[in-house]
Nucleic acid binder design. Structure first.
Lengths: 118, 118
DNA sequence: TGATCATATTCATAATTTCGAATATACTAA
DNA sequence: TTAGTATATTCGAAATTATGAATATGATCA
């Protein structure tokens, strides 16, 4: 695989490597929203939202469209939604694994208490 | 969507937000490899590879299995491969878009030269 | 024109990540 | 036990990222 492709992928991942930015992308699932609408939903500072939006633009994750006073954002490509959906399934699978492990552990040592790691 | 899920996703993305780590995951597509085999393929310092592997472990992206002297790594869940595949398709789609834009631009202004941005 | 609204950028600081070098651990073989 | 091999961890410096505060831009409306 080409280095350019790895570079590209890591750019995308960097763009999504923040919970607020993931929230933004998820709010945009249903269609475009203005910066103001996003800020309202996110409940964060305007400047902060604007910075996260700048990151998402720079990493090619969203596109913006200016209409008069406002700027409307949308997801550049549906592929990114698919990615998030896959991870949601992954998350629940992981969760199940963890829960089952804990159940097993509980069965094997019913009187023991959980021990903190590290 | 829950905050925990967003947190989880951003962890995964952080884990993959580096070209070397993407390379590792891709080498592991076909099955498990020892740390040494990975280092050979990656052509990077042993310590550096080991650090990236530690990140991938911490972010729950790979699992390791010790056999005598060596440590074998594999991808924890196939979902992550799917994610990378989706991004590959996205990458080429983006590439086509860019190429087409450049073609259009060339048609419209055949004598102009490309201007550097920023 | 000036006031106001929506959004972006800049700046300073703190926190995190990266990488190489050095060192440590853990297993194996002699 | 000692030496050697495979891998991990720690440390320090540089680079990158996150965040809030302040400021700037640009569009609209009076």
């Amino acid at each position: 695989m080409s280095d350019a492709l790895r570079q590209f992928k890591s750019q995308i991942f960097q763009g999504l490597a923040n919970p607020t930015r993931i929230a933004i992308v998820e709010f945009l699932r249903e269609g475009e929203l203005s910066a103001g609408q996003l800020i309202e939903k996110l409940e964060i500072e305007q400047a902060n939202a604007s910075q996260h939006l700048a990151v998402l633009r720079a990493k090619q994750i969203v596109v913006s469209r200016k209409v008069g006073n406002q700027v409307y954002y949308s997801i550049r490509d549906h592929a990114l939604i698919e990615v998030l959906d896959i991870l949601r399934r992954y998350f629940y699978a992981q969760l199940n694994t963890t829960v089952n492990m804990l159940k097993e552990a509980a069965k094997e040592a019913p009187k023991s208490r959980l021990v903190t790691r590290r």
